[in-house]
């Protein structure tokens, strides 16, 4: 097990190196400068700015600098937000995205599993159709439409929630729902299909024959096995959800990390692009690793070493 984790860590390092390099070169290839502004300023000042951020060096020196920055995890000052370091930006906005993300995760897993189980248990009867309809709607309606509709009806028309901002728990309910519903739909579909598959297996029939109730069988036996595909999906989902959603953060005016991914690129804010990319990659890679480890906990048949064939 430890050897496996160690090996995976090496892979993570290699993947990170490739991501950092690719980001760096794509960033340099993209036209536009971080300092371009509607109102032009003298070339001398631009030269000073370039020197300040090391952009006057040849590309290989800049590349080396970025690699060093990445290793020491210190990306320097933002080029757009004066006097603010990239690390500050990440450390201030990430906890907010994390909170919202965890809330959304709990909601999406809860809703998804519930819908999926109902759909599977009442296979081809009306609860199944209802649950499936909700799931499909959840998947196909984009989160920004959902967010806009919820904001208009629940917050403005009914006044149940504040319209936007981030000042307390009730501010987080609508955005968390907006993020959760798409994923809940997806999880529901996954659970439904794997539950159906498990439902035909011998051990379930055995449990039912022994006289165990429908729901007891589900929670004691079937669900545990049916969760496996969901766990696979959870890795990338966690990474995606806890680092924030641009669209939802924009609509609900939440000061999270998600918007920095997009705005840093449109601003050509090189240091923030690099910082957020590396940060996101690390979270994503580790989330996938943890999922792989979780597999063996949930299903002992899966051996991480993969030695026995």
């Amino acid at each position: 097990m430890l050897r496996y984790i160690f090996k995976r860590l090496i892979y993570i390092l290699i993947a990170l190196f490739i991501i950092v390099s690719a980001t760096f070169f794509l960033m340099k290839l993209a036209p536009g400068s971080p300092f371009a502004s509607e109102r032009d300023f003298p070339a001398e000042i631009e030269a000073q700015l370039n020197a300040k951020y090391g952009l006057d060096n040849p590309w290989y020196i800049q590349y080396k600098d970025y690699l060093v920055d990445t290793i020491s995890f210190d990306f320097g000052e933002s080029m757009k937000y004066k006097g603010r370091s990239t690390n500050d930006i990440i450390s201030e906005s990430f906890p907010i995205s994390l909170t919202l993300g965890i809330e959304a995760m709990i909601l999406s897993i809860g809703l998804g599993v519930l819908l999926g189980v109902i759909a599977a248990l009442y296979h081809n009867r009306w609860p199944d159709y209802l649950a499936t309809t909700i799931a499909v709607l959840g998947i196909s309606v984009p989160s920004f439409i959902l967010a806009g509709l919820m904001q208009y009806f629940l917050a403005y028309k009914l006044g149940m929630f504040p319209v936007s901002g981030w000042k307390g728990f009730n501010y987080s309910i609508l955005p968390a729902l907006a993020i959760a519903i798409t994923h809940a739909g997806f999880i529901a579909k996954l659970i439904r299909s794997s539950m159906l598959e498990q439902g035909n297996s011998d051990y379930v029939k055995m449990a039912r024959a022994k006289g165990l109730g429908k729901w007891t069988t589900v929670f004691r036996h079937t669900l545990r096995n049916a969760l496996l595909p969901v766990v696979t999906y959870l890795g990338p989902l966690t990474a995606g959800v806890v680092t924030g959603s641009f669209i939802v953060e924009q609509i609900f005016a939440i000061p999270g990390l998600g918007r920095h991914f997009v705005t840093s690129i449109t601003n050509r804010d090189y240091t923030v692009i690099m910082g957020t990319t590396v940060f996101y990659s690390i979270i994503l890679l580790f989330a996938v690793l943890i999922v792989d480890i979780l597999y063996s906990v949930i299903d002992p048949r899966i051996k991480l070493k993969g030695a026995k064939k």
Binding site: A155, Y156, V163, S164, Q250, A253, R259
Partner: peptide, 18 residues
């Protein structure tokens, strides 16, 4: 002063009296 990027959200906030 809150920072709200979306014009639509801003208008809704105004209508809601925020």
């Amino acid at each position: 002063i809150s920072m709200v990027e979306s014009e639509t959200t801003t208008a809704t906030m105004f209508d809601a009296g925020e």
